[in-house]
Write a protein that binds this DNA or RNA. Structure first.
Lengths: 171, 171
DNA sequence: ACACCTTCGTTCGAATTTGAACAATAGGAG
DNA sequence: CTCCTATTGTTCAAATTCGAACGAAGGTGT
């Protein structure tokens, strides 16, 4: 009964190169809690955002990233990278947000192919309206549950993990 | 420009109860790295599993949870809870896995309504076949990137986060 | 100027996901 | 036993997701 988990009936002897290094109890606990926390958190945030603002978490994140960017606008590809989604997925969501009047599209002056997604005034308002509740929940469910040290470790460790993944993807 | 983030143009004075407690730089870093790492990781694992075994991450996780359960079987609702998905989503995926011959359905003796999802012999084989590559990648991208201490903190902190979320959901 | 390889954003179809509605049953209070 | 409420798994329509294929440009080397 292998899984991501600890050695099932793996030979307790020296690891043969055929048998992978399974995860020990602690490693397994870390991985499971990461996956579970991630799923549970997403679910909760999704529900809350939808209820309180009519936005999906994805849509909210798009607004956030645009808001954080200079001039409230970003190239589609760049935005997709930051959000960690597919380009086609972004195209879809930006279209949705456009219909809602929260985001607009502008063509890029220096590159005919380029498209800027741009936060509209309404989009900015929406974000200001949705943010407090969202932040409060993130705080309640994650941030305030952890100690300062735990947060530091999280930021640091997962920061490295992300960096590594970004590098790999770039290949 | 609010987000999940640090105080935008919030009054540097004492926080009024209207203005939420925004996230400071460190908290923000922790939250962003968590979200980003989670997305990047999922993307990677999804791709790899699909390529090497033709399974989605969700499907793989179903097999894992069944394999870990006594008799290799679990009630649908219980399984959905452990996986953190919707019941309807699970119904769909179990049907898919059933078509592939990796999972079977058995009715529950003590409850007519109940349905057990059960790992088949083929499902077990598939898991044994897919696990090594999956574990190796999880190790390469997450586990081995972190120190023993970081892993412990992760397991501990996110364990608490999950526990808290489970409790809330139960309400 | 000309090929050639990349990059850009969109479109397309297929797969997945979700919540709400449902029918059937379980379980408890009276 | 009987009524009432909670639970179980499925079905349904709608929304979202992805990768592959595209057409259109950019950029480079010759």
């Amino acid at each position: 009964m292998p899984s991501t988990s600890s050695a099932p009936s793996a030979p307790p002897s020296a690891a043969s190169s055929r048998e992978p290094r399974w995860l020990d109890e602690e490693e397994m606990a870390a991985w499971r809690s990461f996956v579970t926390a991630s799923n549970l958190l997403n679910r909760r945030l999704e529900r809350q955002l939808k209820e309180e603002s009519g936005l999906s978490h994805t849509q909210y994140e798009i607004l956030v990233h645009l808001s954080a960017a200079p001039a409230g606008s970003l190239r589609m590809t760049e935005l997709a990278d930051r959000l960690v989604t597919s380009k086609s997925g972004l195209t879809y969501q930006v279209t949705q947000l456009e219909k809602m009047g929260l985001v607009g599209r502008r063509s890029c002056p220096s590159d005919v192919r380029g498209v800027f997604a741009e936060l509209t005034e309404q989009g900015d308002e929406m974000l200001r309206e949705a943010a407090p509740g969202h932040v409060a929940l993130v705080r309640e469910l994650l941030i305030d549950v952890l100690t300062r040290e735990q947060l530091a470790v999280l930021a640091d460790g997962l920061g490295q993990v992300s960096a590594r993944l970004r590098l790999d993807d770039a290949l």
